[in-house]
Amino acid sequence: MHIDWLRQEIIFKIIYYGPGLGGKTTNLEYIHAHLDPKLRSKLISLKTRDERTLYFDFLELSIGRIKGKKPRFHLYTIPGQQYYHMSRKIVLRGADAIVFVVDSQKARRVENLAALMDLETKLIQQQKTLAELPWVLQYNKRDLTDIESVAALQGKLNFLSVPHYEAVASQGVGVFETLRGVVQLLVQKV
């Protein structure tokens, strides 16, 4: 979080974290495509040639002045592939809240858990913990057939009973609900 007292602005950093190909970039793409252009910046995507996130995606939301003050939200995604762990560590720096995007497919069980453990490890390295940081879970790809039940995902991943949202990010289902949820949690906690 950054407060600019001169311009009366407050900026929050929200990170979309999760396993590779889980739908983090799709969330940002949907928000970018469906929000009034006056309220958001251009979507910056640093991608490899095969369209995988190389470094991060970045989108700024700004919802005008409130009581003379201007809140802004910086939304970042991280690259999910295991070998980009340095990029994740760096983008995570200074995060105010996290959306953990879960791939609901049974075949991605291990990757989901590994990504969550990776997140917790990186937070501990920054003297933070998941217990103190505002975060929510998004169970994505609920439209696919071979998926885990929400109850099973809750049992495996939601050990801190944080808010969770079911989503089909490619169709926009649950995308804004997740964003609203994380922002609400964030402003309650600061």
């Binding site: 929000l35 919802i63 964003l179 922002v183």
Partner: peptide, 15 residues
């Protein structure tokens, strides 16, 4: 904080 969440809701609904 209240106005902020309300404003975000409005922006989302207006999409």
């Amino acid at each position: 904080r209240d106005i902020l969440t309300q404003r975000l809701d409005e922006s989302i609904r207006a999409r």
